[in-house]
Design a protein around this nucleic acid. Structure first.
Lengths: 203, 203, 203, 203
DNA sequence: CATGAATGAGTATTCATTCAT
DNA sequence: AATGAATGAATACTCATTCAT
């Protein structure tokens, strides 16, 4: 009986490598991050790295997936604790956007991902996030079906989710030489969300 | 006998090189485009290429700028010919979005830029475009100042321009495995624009 | 309860590994055969493989030796059953050559060995074969000492054996873009053998 | 007007690289010869090497071809000067075999090629040599058509050329632990040649 | 003895960039 | 100013081999 079951060790190795990838990314930027750097940072031989990931791209994709998972779960927890279903759309969306911006600002990995969304398999991050927010929106609109027309709901959500995520990303990227404040941005974005979904209701 | 003044020759060379860059990008994709390919396609030695551009990045940035210029001028022409100032926002924005999507679809260079927004200095494309659309919006809102509140106008335009551009980009990137049609997308986006700017006016 | 004495188990392991080596060679070709592949195919860990063979070369050498052993014994059986000692040289050699070619053609391992005689320790195959054929020739010439002068017999056999083996190998390697048929080749080779050994007797 | 015309410089570079390849081969053996070693030995950057040869294999093949060319021309000169057409087959073949062995013995490159005929694209050497000797044999047999039957001539020459070349190669490879002397080998081989081609004439 | 996770030296090849001509 | 031959740092990935368990 080995101390650590195989599966667990394997998982740990994967985690370690992804941590190292994130760290390397944050430190040197994507272009200067080699697989050897990553292995070294993980305190693992390059051979081991390739035992767990078939190639560099796989590593990056896995990182994107992990980030999207984390973001999702953090948002879910937060939103649930908040009982977001009970509040009006403006409040909820404004709050979540601010919260998201803050989270990214305080996480070097997200930070680096934003900095180099050029060069990363961004779809692997955005696709799941899109789905996640879609799933989060569902119960909300079921509950508030009277206030919001359901016409084109899917299309509208597609547009809003991507618009919000990408605009925030771009904002963070080109900041801080930016005239708009975070608060302002969140305000406008949440306005936009409400405006598109519940035109007549907007203040 | 030097027919052409130095400056003009220089300009022509730059154009030639950018044409070659665009062509190479369109033909081989970003990953397979080397500076040597570009020089060859331009009918010039690499030595010469490096006389005009300090490095490969500069070349790509210049191309981005040029693309943004071209996009701008095409949009400007189009919009002016259309006398867009006279029409209502919904019509104008819907039309321009559809037109833009179509233009990208028919231009292999834009196509490749979309495909590899990873790896390209996208800011060099987006920053000027942002400014351009801002400048185009100005006269419009001056004329229609009665219909649209000017509060937060700059911020709103920032959000809308980026949301639209980026969402379209993402749409084109992940297409054609997409459920939403182009028409639908344009419809929703233009709705969003109107909704944010003239909430009460929305149909 | 150790049913099997150490030595026997060891021998079996060696056989198993050599079988696996041969199989891997036949299936993936020499270039794509790694020690790990071999171990896996043998249903054994690489660690075990290295318990029985110091390195990869040793494995290949052992395989060569084994192939040479098998070839020898097959030829011996065949020749003995044939009572080759009783027949004239032309018949015997012609028959054995044809038989050999056929055997190689139908054995994927031999096939691969031929294809990559570059990269294999061919001596380990040829040296024993040389000796074997020499030993097989002995009784023959003892019996037919009247028909064949024994002058330089050893040297002549050295030349003939190598000439025959290597020419056949080269023939199989460059085939099938070859003008000469197998039959023809065998015919000429056996003629050559007879001609050198019994000049006056040749038909 | 450049000092050296492009073509000549190019040729010189190729020669230099092939020399280096041969030298590296002779010094370290094929397996330990890397493209970087070769470039270094040639006093040239690795980049330049790849400007002249697409890959390592091409380098090796080119070397084989060059060796076969050299061997051919040396033999041709020698044989012509000798007016080999006038002499009887035994004398000619015996002489040429001895000469060949000697030539290989005194040329480190040929030496190394023999040592590592494993791992080299031997066909590139043998195919042309086969053709060369065939072409050299032609005029001989035209002249001596009365002494030698022309039946199966092509096939016989194929067998003899390969047998001789390969047996000599193997002899040189396994030497010096060899019982047979060079003289003896040449004697037997030339006997074999004569015996197969002119059975009745043999002494 | 067996295991197989971990190792890491080793290699072919690319391509942006320079600089002597 | 133009050329393009030469450069060489840089990199992803392999696979024979080891050794702690």
């Amino acid at each position: 009986m080995r101390k650590m079951p195989k599966q667990k060790r394997s998982r740990e190795m994967v985690e370690r490598l992804l941590d190292a990838t994130a760290a390397a990314l944050a430190e040197r930027g994507l272009d200067d991050t080699t697989t050897n750097h990553i292995a070294e940072k993980a305190g693992v031989s390059i051979g081991s790295l390739y035992q767990y990931f078939p190639d560099k791209d796989a590593l990056m994709e896995a990182l994107m997936v992990r980030v999207s998972d984390r973001v999702s779960s953090v948002f879910r927890e937060h939103a649930t604790k908040l009982e977001y279903v009970k509040f009006d759309l403006k409040t909820v969306s404004n709050y979540l956007i601010l919260y998201g911006i803050d989270a990214i600002r305080n996480d070097p990995v997200s930070q680096e991902i934003m900095k180099s969304w050029n060069s990363l398999p961004l779809e692997k991050l955005l696709d799941p996030l899109e789905k996640f927010f879609l799933s989060m929106a569902q119960p909300y609109f079921v509950r508030h079906y009277q206030d919001y027309p359901i016409q084109h709901l899917e299309g509208k959500l597609y547009v809003l989710i991507n618009s919000t995520l990408l605009t925030v990303a771009r904002y963070l990227q080109s900041a801080p030489n930016n005239a708009i404040t975070e608060k302002n941005l969140a305000h406008i974005l949440s306005d936009m969300i409400v405006a598109l979904l519940a035109p007549q209701a907007k203040a």
